[in-house]
Amino acid sequence: MKVSKRVLEMEESVTLAAGARAKQLKAEGRDILSLTLGEPDFTTPENIQEAAIAAIRDGRASFYTVTSGLPELKTAISGYFEKFYGYSVAPNQVTVATGAKFSLYTFFMSVINPLDEVIIPTPYWVSYADQIKMAEGVPVFVQAREANDFKVTVAQLEAARTAKTKVLVLNSPSNPTGMIYSREELLAIGNWAVEHDILILADDIYGRLVYNGNTFTPISSLSEAIRKQTVVINGVSKTYAMTGWRIGYAVGEPEIIAAMTKVAGQTTSNPTAVAQYGAIEALIGEQDTVEQMRQAFEERLNTIYPLLAEVPGFEVVKPQGAFYLFPNVKKAMDMKGFTDVTAFTTAILEEVGVALVTGAGFGAPENVRLSYATDLDTLKEAVKRLKTFMEG
């Protein structure tokens, strides 16, 4: 039996592959510290759990919902946008999906025609490029340099623009770098996109996870013209420690939102009903727990960053948000005799039991990604082992 060319050409998710390898070695009895997955180590807040249990017990979670999501959840999302984005949205501007990743997929399937080009600043989250290829589009990579805090400029975007450019992907705070675009930078990018009729795909999933006085500005909040050009992707996974619940959503102009709902209707149908009831409580319920988790991530960042910077050959820009560090390890690889970053991360895993993610899958062949969405003791021990590896 032969599989499709589409699947043969598809890259495996490096983050999921690294996480799976770490779990396999743990199952074999190895002492493995995994810093691979972007997954909070906190359990879902109790008020959210209880709301979901109540929905099960009173029968509300037993049935299909409309494909685009419960009306009550759309109302909660609109309220969330009023509070954190500064504008409200109508029900026909919202569609809920089985995770933010699937929201991204339905977006690309809805707007990309064969050979349409999508600009992706690098380093980039691993699934953007392959989802674009699945939609028969062409990813066009623009390198965001470390010297500019991993952010692209309008001049770089203009140099990459062609008559086929359809979409710009913008992820701020960024996975994997954790860097945040300023209001001024976003305004310049947004106005450029409006001028050239380029859609903005704003991946805002880490917007609530910012640290040390930094501020997240949603590009869609800057002007009505930019808002009409933008589709926002967000969800409850990162902010509310709900990765397993698989609830994401998109907000944008009704025509695109309707198209995304149409794709979902022929693939997943509605998101899981009980998870939607949990998401309603997440968005409208108490937010103290969210702040407690954010403060914990901030403490981990401020503790682990200077320790990682002391590891020989590891050069790291301090992130402003999300929960990743993305050190440049070119010097470290040279010191240890490696020319390939994936081989370098494999050696670290096998020799000292620390699972990192190769930067190759993010379009950054001189970097590695580590997640600090785990406890401080594990993080400290992991960095200690990295130092041992480099000094051995």
Rank of each mutant, 00 (worst) to 15 (best):
D31I: 10
L37R: 15
I112D: 00
I120H: 02
S78Q: 07
Y64P: 14
I120A: 02
E28G: 02
A76Q: 03
T122D: 05
M134P: 07
A54W: 04
D41C: 05
M109D: 05
L33W: 06
D41V: 01
S78Y: 01
S127L: 06
Y64W: 04
V138N: 09
A76G: 05
V94Y: 01
T44E: 06
K133I: 10
F84H: 15
L33Q: 04
A129I: 00
S78F: 03
Y80L: 05
F102E: 07
I112P: 00
I48E: 01
T106Y: 02
F102Y: 11
L33G: 00
G59N: 08
S110I: 14
P71V: 11
R30G: 02
L115P: 04
K74G: 05
G38D: 11
Y128F: 15
Y128E: 04
Q93T: 05
R57Y: 06
E72Y: 01
K83E: 13
S34Q: 06
I112A: 00
E82S: 15
A90W: 09
F84E: 11
V89F: 03
N113S: 12
E82Q: 14
A52R: 11
T95V: 15
V138A: 02
P91H: 07
D31K: 15
K133G: 08
P123F: 08
T65V: 06
K83Y: 00
F102N: 10
V126M: 01
V96I: 12
F108V: 08
E28P: 01
Y128S: 10
V89D: 04
Y64K: 14
F81T: 11
F107M: 05
T65A: 12
G79Q: 13
Y85K: 13
E136Q: 14
A76L: 07
A54C: 04
L33P: 00
I119R: 01
E72C: 07
P139Y: 01
Y87E: 06
S68H: 07
F81P: 10
S127Y: 02
K101G: 15
G86T: 05
P114E: 05
P45H: 07
E28C: 03
P139V: 01
E72R: 02
I32F: 05
Y105I: 09
L35T: 02
F42K: 09
E50Y: 03
S68C: 08
A52E: 10
Y85I: 01
G86N: 09
